[in-house]
Write a protein that binds this DNA or RNA. Structure first.
Lengths: 156, 156
DNA sequence: CCCTTCTCTTGACTCAGTCAAGACAACCGG
DNA sequence: CCGGTTGTCTTGACTGAGTCAAGAGAAGGG
């Protein structure tokens, strides 16, 4: 399973290097990680790796189609290896945890807005906001009831 | 129509101030604007307004339900006055232009992922990425064909 | 009109990410 | 197996968007 990365890198026209393999290793273990966490985790295997190298590697991986970048509002970008299917994400408002969801609407998906206003659409990005299971429990234990504090406060 | 802002501010529990009215004025004229553009435009009417004041005002407006904040990946946050309906957005990859779209899936919308993984979902955010009409024309004139360069480069 | 409280100004600061120059290592060819 | 080319990594300075905090200044209730 480890050796496959070499092939994948090469067939994307990328050289096989230690930093890249380290980053891929980290991505394989954590499903949605930010650049900083990747850097920290990669340093276990490759201590001299610099933050900028991580940014560079991630850009290369995304460009080569080996990784996907998502940017939930108000949080640093996250990277994942699941590529090719245009799946979507559940994001927890409390802890920022992210889970994958398969496309809710049919197969090739939700790619059809009701009125495209002259746009040629090539991707539909869906983010479901809510509370993850763990944070629901925490809320209840702290006596906040089941309500969700909508981002930014009041709800008219 | 101008005086309505006073009511809206007050009923959200916010004081009526010159900076707030200026910002609301700008938002009423531009459909999707970033904080910096708002500051510049507001300065026409209220020259002494500071960037931080704009951030503060916008946070207050969003908190009070008078404005909505959207954060397209890779671009500064945008603000709009259209609130209450959970509509979605078309974003142009080329020029960053944004257009509104009514919810594509039924009424209360797309709020149901196929598998919620234990999350309690309270909002579904949809962003359609593509090329706006203007940029399609520009592409063709420069001889790039009709293809869309996917963000970040290659497409496997 | 005064007082309380919220809001604005000013200015320092954080965080995520980019840019650039040079050292270094991966791969191709011999 | 070795050298040269070119892509990649390291180091370090920098940008841009937004936050935090202290104090001056208004908004609006009494």
């Amino acid at each position: 399973m480890e050796t496959t990365w070499e092939h994948r890198l090469r067939s994307a026209g990328l050289r096989v290097t230690r930093p890249r393999l380290s980053v891929l290793g980290v991505l394989a273990e954590h499903s949605h990680v930010d650049a900083d966490t990747i850097a920290t985790a990669a340093r276990v295997v490759h201590p001299s790796i610099s933050p900028q190298a991580v940014y560079g590697v991630l850009k290369a991986l995304v460009g080569g189609g080996l990784a996907r970048r998502i940017e939930p509002a108000g949080a640093p970008a996250l990277y994942e290896l699941r590529v090719g299917d245009n799946h979507h994400h559940l994001v927890c408002r409390e802890c920022g945890d992210v889970a994958d969801v398969d496309c809710a609407v049919g197969a090739a998906p939700c790619l059809t807005p009701s009125d495209a206003a002259g746009f040629v659409v090539d991707e539909a990005e869906v983010v479901f906001w809510g509370l993850c299971a763990g944070c629901q429990v925490a809320r209840r234990q702290h006596g906040y009831g089941a309500g969700i504090a909508i981002r930014g406060g009041a709800t008219a």
